[in-house]
Amino acid sequence: MKIIIINSGSSSIKYQLINMPTQEVICSGMIDRIGLDTSNLTYVTSNTKLDESLLIANHKIGLEKIAQLLMDDRIGVIKSTQEIDAIGHRVVHGGATFSNTVVINEEVKEKIRQLFDLAPLHNPANLEGIDVAQEIFATAKQVAVFDTAFHQTIPVIAYKYAIPSKLLTEKKIRVYGFHGTSHKYVSEKAIEYLEKSSKIISIHLGNGCSMTAIQDGKSMDHTMGFSPSNGLIMGTRSGDIDHSLIFYLINTLGYTPTEVNNLLLKESGMLGLTGYSDLRDIESNAEKGNVDCQLALAMNAYRIRKYIGSYTAAMNGLDAIIFTAGIGENSSYIRKLVCTDMDYFGIEIDMEKNEIRSKEIREINTLTSRTKIMVIPTNEELEISNQVYNLLLN
Protein backbone atom coordinates (compact mmCIF):
# COMPACT_ATOMS: atom_id res chain seq x y z
CA MET A 1 0.00 0.00 0.00
CA LYS A 2 1.49 3.33 -1.10
CA ILE A 3 0.59 6.13 1.27
CA ILE A 4 1.50 9.82 0.94
CA ILE A 5 1.70 11.61 4.27
CA ILE A 6 1.00 15.34 4.28
CA ASN A 7 1.98 17.15 7.47
CA SER A 8 1.03 20.81 7.16
CA GLY A 9 2.43 22.98 9.96
CA SER A 10 1.77 26.66 10.49
CA SER A 11 4.63 27.63 8.15
CA SER A 12 5.77 24.31 6.68
CA ILE A 13 4.76 21.16 4.83
CA LYS A 14 6.56 17.89 5.49
CA TYR A 15 5.75 14.97 3.21
CA GLN A 16 6.70 11.35 2.68
CA LEU A 17 5.65 8.64 0.27
CA ILE A 18 5.78 5.39 2.25
CA ASN A 19 5.26 1.82 1.13
CA MET A 20 3.37 -0.08 3.82
CA PRO A 21 3.69 -2.36 5.70
CA THR A 22 7.44 -2.44 4.96
CA GLN A 23 7.72 1.25 6.03
CA GLU A 24 10.00 1.87 3.03
CA VAL A 25 10.30 5.61 2.42
CA ILE A 26 10.15 6.06 -1.36
CA CYS A 27 10.35 9.83 -1.25
CA SER A 28 10.52 12.52 1.42
CA GLY A 29 11.02 16.22 1.82
CA MET A 30 9.66 19.44 3.15
CA ILE A 31 8.92 23.06 2.41
CA ASP A 32 9.56 25.53 5.22
CA ARG A 33 9.34 29.31 5.67
CA ILE A 34 6.03 29.32 3.76
CA GLY A 35 4.78 32.87 3.32
CA LEU A 36 8.18 34.46 3.97
CA ASP A 37 10.39 36.15 1.37
CA THR A 38 12.27 32.93 0.63
CA SER A 39 11.03 29.38 1.16
CA ASN A 40 13.18 26.26 1.19
CA LEU A 41 12.16 23.07 -0.62
CA THR A 42 13.76 19.64 -0.32
CA TYR A 43 12.89 16.53 -2.31
CA VAL A 44 14.75 13.30 -1.64
CA THR A 45 14.55 9.85 -3.26
CA SER A 46 17.03 6.96 -3.35
CA ASN A 47 18.94 8.60 -6.20
CA THR A 48 17.88 12.26 -6.10
CA LYS A 49 18.35 15.11 -3.67
CA LEU A 50 16.89 18.44 -4.68
CA ASP A 51 17.28 21.63 -2.65
CA GLU A 52 15.67 24.82 -3.89
CA SER A 53 15.09 28.31 -2.57
CA LEU A 54 11.95 29.82 -4.05
CA LEU A 55 8.86 31.78 -3.11
CA ILE A 56 6.02 29.64 -1.75
CA ALA A 57 3.28 32.07 -0.82
CA ASN A 58 0.86 29.60 0.77
CA HIS A 59 0.20 25.93 1.47
CA LYS A 60 -1.83 25.36 -1.72
CA ILE A 61 1.08 26.41 -3.93
CA GLY A 62 3.42 24.26 -1.85
CA LEU A 63 1.28 21.13 -2.20
CA GLU A 64 0.91 21.63 -5.94
CA LYS A 65 4.71 21.89 -6.22
CA ILE A 66 5.16 18.64 -4.27
CA ALA A 67 2.69 16.83 -6.55
CA GLN A 68 4.59 18.07 -9.63
CA LEU A 69 7.85 16.67 -8.27
CA LEU A 70 6.32 13.28 -7.42
CA MET A 71 5.18 12.86 -11.04
CA ASP A 72 8.10 14.61 -12.75
CA ASP A 73 9.28 12.78 -15.89
CA ARG A 74 12.94 12.90 -14.79
CA ILE A 75 13.01 12.71 -10.98
CA GLY A 76 9.48 11.60 -10.11
CA VAL A 77 8.66 8.34 -8.32
CA ILE A 78 5.18 7.66 -9.70
CA LYS A 79 3.77 7.69 -13.22
CA SER A 80 0.15 8.17 -12.29
CA THR A 81 -1.85 9.40 -9.32
CA GLN A 82 -3.69 6.07 -9.40
CA GLU A 83 -0.59 4.40 -7.92
CA ILE A 84 -1.37 6.09 -4.60
CA ASP A 85 -3.68 4.10 -2.33
CA ALA A 86 -4.13 6.62 0.46
CA ILE A 87 -3.25 10.11 1.66
CA GLY A 88 -2.70 10.54 5.39
CA HIS A 89 -3.32 14.08 6.62
CA ARG A 90 -2.15 15.47 9.93
CA VAL A 91 -5.02 17.56 11.33
CA VAL A 92 -4.22 19.64 14.39
CA HIS A 93 -7.57 20.08 16.16
CA GLY A 94 -10.16 17.34 16.42
CA GLY A 95 -12.12 18.99 19.23
CA ALA A 96 -14.54 16.74 21.10
CA THR A 97 -15.62 15.11 17.83
CA PHE A 98 -12.54 13.12 16.83
CA SER A 99 -10.55 10.91 19.17
CA ASN A 100 -9.48 8.41 16.50
CA THR A 101 -8.15 8.30 12.95
CA VAL A 102 -10.97 8.58 10.37
CA VAL A 103 -11.60 8.30 6.63
CA ILE A 104 -12.39 11.79 5.35
CA ASN A 105 -15.81 12.59 3.91
CA GLU A 106 -17.74 15.85 3.56
CA GLU A 107 -19.01 15.61 7.14
CA VAL A 108 -15.45 15.24 8.49
CA LYS A 109 -14.31 18.20 6.41
CA GLU A 110 -17.12 20.34 7.76
CA LYS A 111 -16.20 19.42 11.34
CA ILE A 112 -12.57 20.38 10.65
CA ARG A 113 -13.83 23.68 9.20
CA GLN A 114 -15.92 24.34 12.31
CA LEU A 115 -12.73 24.10 14.38
CA PHE A 116 -10.91 26.84 12.40
CA ASP A 117 -11.36 29.35 15.23
CA LEU A 118 -9.63 27.00 17.69
CA ALA A 119 -6.60 26.35 15.47
CA PRO A 120 -6.52 29.27 13.01
CA LEU A 121 -2.88 28.75 12.01
CA HIS A 122 -3.32 25.04 11.36
CA ASN A 123 -6.77 23.65 10.62
CA PRO A 124 -7.28 25.92 7.57
CA ALA A 125 -3.92 24.72 6.17
CA ASN A 126 -4.84 21.12 7.02
CA LEU A 127 -8.18 21.38 5.22
CA GLU A 128 -6.57 23.08 2.25
CA GLY A 129 -4.16 20.14 2.05
CA ILE A 130 -7.10 17.75 2.04
CA ASP A 131 -8.92 19.69 -0.71
CA VAL A 132 -5.83 19.90 -2.94
CA ALA A 133 -5.00 16.22 -2.37
CA GLN A 134 -8.56 15.21 -3.31
CA GLU A 135 -8.20 17.11 -6.57
CA ILE A 136 -4.80 15.66 -7.46
CA PHE A 137 -5.15 12.12 -6.06
CA ALA A 138 -8.83 11.57 -6.77
CA THR A 139 -8.77 7.76 -6.46
CA ALA A 140 -6.88 7.64 -3.15
CA LYS A 141 -8.52 7.25 0.26
CA GLN A 142 -8.11 10.45 2.27
CA VAL A 143 -7.53 9.85 6.00
CA ALA A 144 -7.24 12.31 8.89
CA VAL A 145 -5.00 11.72 11.92
CA PHE A 146 -5.66 14.20 14.73
CA ASP A 147 -2.99 15.77 16.94
CA THR A 148 -5.45 15.89 19.83
CA ALA A 149 -5.99 12.11 19.97
CA PHE A 150 -2.90 11.18 22.05
CA HIS A 151 -3.99 13.57 24.80
CA GLN A 152 -7.34 11.89 25.45
CA THR A 153 -5.69 10.22 28.47
CA ILE A 154 -5.10 13.55 30.27
CA PRO A 155 -7.04 13.26 33.57
CA VAL A 156 -9.89 15.62 34.40
CA ILE A 157 -7.80 17.28 37.14
CA ALA A 158 -5.53 18.56 34.36
CA TYR A 159 -7.89 19.09 31.43
CA LYS A 160 -10.74 20.91 33.20
CA TYR A 161 -10.59 24.70 33.46
CA ALA A 162 -11.71 26.47 36.65
CA ILE A 163 -14.72 28.04 34.93
CA PRO A 164 -18.42 27.14 35.24
CA SER A 165 -18.72 23.37 34.76
CA LYS A 166 -21.49 23.69 32.17
CA LEU A 167 -18.93 25.11 29.73
CA LEU A 168 -17.22 21.72 29.80
CA THR A 169 -20.32 19.54 29.79
CA GLU A 170 -22.32 21.58 27.29
CA LYS A 171 -19.71 23.36 25.17
CA LYS A 172 -16.73 20.96 25.52
CA ILE A 173 -14.35 23.73 26.58
CA ARG A 174 -11.30 21.98 28.01
CA VAL A 175 -7.60 21.29 27.47
CA TYR A 176 -7.24 19.22 24.29
CA GLY A 177 -3.49 19.15 23.73
CA PHE A 178 -1.61 19.21 20.43
CA HIS A 179 1.46 17.85 18.62
CA GLY A 180 0.12 14.51 19.86
CA THR A 181 1.39 12.54 16.88
CA SER A 182 4.94 13.74 17.58
CA HIS A 183 4.76 13.33 21.37
CA LYS A 184 3.36 9.81 20.97
CA TYR A 185 6.07 8.77 18.51
CA VAL A 186 9.08 10.06 20.45
CA SER A 187 7.81 8.90 23.85
CA GLU A 188 7.33 5.37 22.51
CA LYS A 189 10.86 5.48 21.10
CA ALA A 190 12.16 6.66 24.49
CA ILE A 191 10.35 3.90 26.38
CA GLU A 192 11.76 1.33 23.93
CA TYR A 193 15.26 2.81 24.36
CA LEU A 194 15.04 3.01 28.16
CA GLU A 195 13.44 -0.46 28.31
CA LYS A 196 10.87 0.69 30.85
CA SER A 197 7.77 2.83 31.11
CA SER A 198 9.13 6.01 32.64
CA LYS A 199 8.22 9.49 33.77
CA ILE A 200 9.10 11.53 30.69
CA ILE A 201 8.77 15.14 29.58
CA SER A 202 8.62 15.46 25.81
CA ILE A 203 9.66 18.90 24.49
CA HIS A 204 8.54 19.55 20.90
CA LEU A 205 10.17 22.72 19.61
CA GLY A 206 9.43 24.02 16.12
CA ASN A 207 7.62 27.10 14.88
CA GLY A 208 4.95 25.80 17.22
CA CYS A 209 6.19 24.55 20.61
CA SER A 210 4.71 22.32 23.28
CA MET A 211 5.59 20.03 26.16
CA THR A 212 3.86 16.91 27.44
CA ALA A 213 4.14 15.11 30.77
CA ILE A 214 4.05 11.39 29.94
CA GLN A 215 3.74 8.67 32.56
CA ASP A 216 3.66 4.97 31.67
CA GLY A 217 3.27 5.92 28.02
CA LYS A 218 0.20 8.09 28.57
CA SER A 219 -0.19 11.84 28.21
CA MET A 220 -0.89 13.29 31.66
CA ASP A 221 -0.61 17.04 31.03
CA HIS A 222 0.27 19.38 28.19
CA THR A 223 1.29 23.01 27.76
CA MET A 224 -1.22 23.85 25.02
CA GLY A 225 -4.88 23.92 25.91
CA PHE A 226 -8.22 24.59 24.23
CA SER A 227 -6.29 25.78 21.19
CA PRO A 228 -2.60 25.48 20.15
CA SER A 229 -1.77 28.99 21.36
CA ASN A 230 -1.03 28.48 25.04
CA GLY A 231 2.13 27.47 26.89
CA LEU A 232 5.60 28.03 25.48
CA ILE A 233 6.87 31.03 23.51
CA MET A 234 6.60 30.14 19.82
CA GLY A 235 7.56 31.54 16.44
CA THR A 236 4.67 34.00 16.23
CA ARG A 237 2.45 32.93 19.17
CA SER A 238 2.76 34.47 22.62
CA GLY A 239 2.10 31.34 24.66
CA ASP A 240 0.99 31.96 28.25
CA ILE A 241 -0.33 35.46 28.99
CA ASP A 242 -2.62 37.03 31.59
CA HIS A 243 -6.10 36.86 29.99
CA SER A 244 -6.86 40.34 31.40
CA LEU A 245 -4.40 41.67 28.81
CA ILE A 246 -6.92 40.82 26.09
CA PHE A 247 -9.60 43.00 27.69
CA TYR A 248 -7.11 45.80 28.33
CA LEU A 249 -6.11 45.82 24.66
CA ILE A 250 -9.77 45.98 23.62
CA ASN A 251 -11.33 48.23 26.27
CA THR A 252 -8.46 50.64 26.97
CA LEU A 253 -6.20 50.60 23.91
CA GLY A 254 -8.97 50.32 21.32
CA TYR A 255 -8.00 47.07 19.60
CA THR A 256 -10.76 45.01 17.98
CA PRO A 257 -11.09 41.32 18.97
CA THR A 258 -9.82 40.35 15.51
CA GLU A 259 -6.76 42.59 15.93
CA VAL A 260 -6.00 41.08 19.34
CA ASN A 261 -6.33 37.56 17.96
CA ASN A 262 -3.98 38.45 15.10
CA LEU A 263 -1.55 40.13 17.52
CA LEU A 264 -1.30 37.10 19.84
CA LEU A 265 -1.15 34.45 17.11
CA LYS A 266 0.75 36.06 14.25
CA GLU A 267 2.69 39.05 15.62
CA SER A 268 3.91 37.85 19.02
CA GLY A 269 6.29 35.15 20.25
CA MET A 270 9.81 35.32 18.90
CA LEU A 271 8.66 37.53 16.02
CA GLY A 272 7.24 40.12 18.40
CA LEU A 273 10.35 40.03 20.57
CA THR A 274 12.96 40.16 17.80
CA GLY A 275 11.43 40.90 14.41
CA TYR A 276 12.29 37.33 13.31
CA SER A 277 10.13 34.20 13.55
CA ASP A 278 12.73 31.67 12.40
CA LEU A 279 15.04 30.56 15.22
CA ARG A 280 17.98 30.22 12.84
CA ASP A 281 17.79 33.94 12.12
CA ILE A 282 17.43 34.72 15.83
CA GLU A 283 20.41 32.60 16.89
CA SER A 284 22.54 34.09 14.11
CA ASN A 285 21.75 37.63 15.22
CA ALA A 286 22.19 36.77 18.90
CA GLU A 287 25.70 35.54 18.15
CA LYS A 288 26.39 38.91 16.48
CA GLY A 289 25.40 40.72 19.67
CA ASN A 290 21.72 41.51 19.07
CA VAL A 291 20.44 42.09 22.62
CA ASP A 292 16.77 41.57 21.70
CA CYS A 293 17.56 38.17 20.19
CA GLN A 294 19.67 37.17 23.19
CA LEU A 295 16.88 38.09 25.58
CA ALA A 296 14.22 36.30 23.50
CA LEU A 297 16.23 33.08 23.52
CA ALA A 298 16.72 33.34 27.29
CA MET A 299 12.96 33.94 27.76
CA ASN A 300 12.17 30.97 25.54
CA ALA A 301 14.40 28.65 27.59
CA TYR A 302 13.12 30.07 30.90
CA ARG A 303 9.53 29.19 29.99
CA ILE A 304 10.58 25.62 29.14
CA ARG A 305 12.46 25.29 32.43
CA LYS A 306 9.38 26.39 34.39
CA TYR A 307 7.29 23.67 32.79
CA ILE A 308 9.96 21.05 33.47
CA GLY A 309 9.67 21.98 37.14
CA SER A 310 5.87 21.86 37.20
CA TYR A 311 5.61 18.57 35.32
CA THR A 312 8.25 16.95 37.49
CA ALA A 313 6.10 17.92 40.48
CA ALA A 314 2.92 16.67 38.80
CA MET A 315 4.46 13.24 38.11
CA ASN A 316 6.40 13.15 41.39
CA GLY A 317 9.59 12.35 39.52
CA LEU A 318 11.46 12.54 36.26
CA ASP A 319 13.41 9.86 34.39
CA ALA A 320 14.04 11.58 31.05
CA ILE A 321 13.45 14.69 28.99
CA ILE A 322 13.20 14.53 25.22
CA PHE A 323 14.09 17.28 22.76
CA THR A 324 12.43 16.84 19.38
CA ALA A 325 11.20 18.62 16.20
CA GLY A 326 13.15 21.14 14.11
CA ILE A 327 14.49 23.34 16.92
CA GLY A 328 14.66 20.62 19.57
CA GLU A 329 16.68 18.33 17.33
CA ASN A 330 18.99 20.94 15.78
CA SER A 331 19.50 23.82 18.22
CA SER A 332 22.30 22.95 20.63
CA TYR A 333 22.03 26.55 21.85
CA ILE A 334 18.45 26.16 23.10
CA ARG A 335 19.18 22.77 24.63
CA LYS A 336 22.13 24.27 26.50
CA LEU A 337 20.07 27.21 27.79
CA VAL A 338 17.32 24.86 29.00
CA CYS A 339 19.56 22.30 30.70
CA THR A 340 22.19 24.52 32.34
CA ASP A 341 21.87 24.88 36.14
CA MET A 342 19.14 22.23 36.37
CA ASP A 343 21.11 19.80 38.56
CA TYR A 344 18.43 19.98 41.30
CA PHE A 345 16.26 17.95 38.90
CA GLY A 346 19.12 15.58 38.11
CA ILE A 347 19.57 17.23 34.70
CA GLU A 348 23.25 17.57 33.78
CA ILE A 349 24.09 18.26 30.14
CA ASP A 350 27.32 17.13 28.46
CA MET A 351 28.35 20.14 26.37
CA GLU A 352 30.41 18.09 23.90
CA LYS A 353 27.66 15.54 23.29
CA ASN A 354 25.19 18.40 22.88
CA GLU A 355 27.12 19.72 19.88
CA ILE A 356 27.12 16.39 18.02
CA ARG A 357 24.70 16.21 15.09
CA SER A 358 22.99 12.92 14.38
CA LYS A 359 19.74 11.55 13.02
CA GLU A 360 19.80 8.76 15.58
CA ILE A 361 18.39 8.65 19.11
CA ARG A 362 21.10 9.94 21.43
CA GLU A 363 21.82 10.93 25.01
CA ILE A 364 23.41 14.31 25.68
CA ASN A 365 23.57 14.02 29.45
CA THR A 366 26.67 13.45 31.55
CA LEU A 367 27.39 9.96 32.90
CA THR A 368 26.45 11.15 36.41
CA SER A 369 23.14 12.78 35.38
CA ARG A 370 20.19 11.16 37.17
CA THR A 371 17.85 12.28 34.42
CA LYS A 372 18.41 11.22 30.83
CA ILE A 373 18.55 14.10 28.33
CA MET A 374 17.59 12.64 24.98
CA VAL A 375 17.40 13.98 21.45
CA ILE A 376 14.94 11.90 19.45
CA PRO A 377 14.15 12.85 15.85
CA THR A 378 10.40 12.87 15.48
CA ASN A 379 8.75 11.07 12.59
CA GLU A 380 5.15 12.17 12.56
CA GLU A 381 4.87 10.94 8.98
CA LEU A 382 5.72 7.34 9.91
CA GLU A 383 3.36 7.45 12.88
CA ILE A 384 0.57 8.79 10.62
CA SER A 385 1.36 6.12 8.02
CA ASN A 386 1.06 3.36 10.62
CA GLN A 387 -2.30 4.70 11.77
CA VAL A 388 -3.63 5.07 8.21
CA TYR A 389 -2.50 1.57 7.25
CA ASN A 390 -4.05 -0.01 10.35
CA LEU A 391 -7.34 1.83 9.80
CA LEU A 392 -7.65 0.82 6.14
CA LEU A 393 -6.44 -2.74 6.77
CA ASN A 394 -9.23 -3.28 9.28
Rank of each mutant, 00 (worst) to 15 (best):
I5H: 00
G9P: 02
L17C: 08
M20S: 12
P21L: 14
E24I: 09
E24N: 14
V25H: 00
V25M: 06
C27A: 15
I34C: 09
L36H: 10
S39K: 00
Y43F: 15
T45P: 07
L50G: 11
L54A: 11
I61C: 06
A67D: 03
A67Q: 05
M71Q: 15
D72K: 08
R74V: 12
K79T: 11
T81H: 05
T81F: 07
I84N: 04
G88T: 02
T97L: 10
S99V: 05
K109S: 11
E110S: 15
I112Q: 00
Q114F: 06
F116A: 13
P120L: 12
L121C: 04
H122G: 05
H122M: 09
P124W: 01
N126V: 14
V132Q: 02
Q134C: 09
Q134Y: 00
E135R: 09
K141C: 06
K141L: 02
K141M: 06
T148H: 02
A149I: 07
F150W: 10
I157Y: 09
A162M: 10
S165A: 07
S165Y: 03
K166Y: 15
L168P: 02
T169C: 00
E170C: 10
K172D: 13
V175Q: 15
G177R: 10
T181D: 02
T181C: 03
S187T: 15
K189A: 12
E192W: 05
S197H: 10
L205H: 02
C209W: 00
I214W: 05
I214P: 02
Q215I: 11
K218W: 06
S219F: 04
M224L: 12
P228Y: 03
L232V: 05
N251Q: 13
N251P: 00
L264E: 01
M270A: 04
G272V: 01
T274Q: 06
L279K: 03
D281V: 01
G289M: 09
C293D: 08
A325F: 00
G326P: 07
E329A: 03
S332K: 14
Y333T: 13
Y333H: 13
D343C: 03
M351E: 14
I356T: 08
I364D: 03
V375G: 00
E381C: 07
L382C: 10
I384F: 10
V388S: 01
L391D: 08
L393M: 13
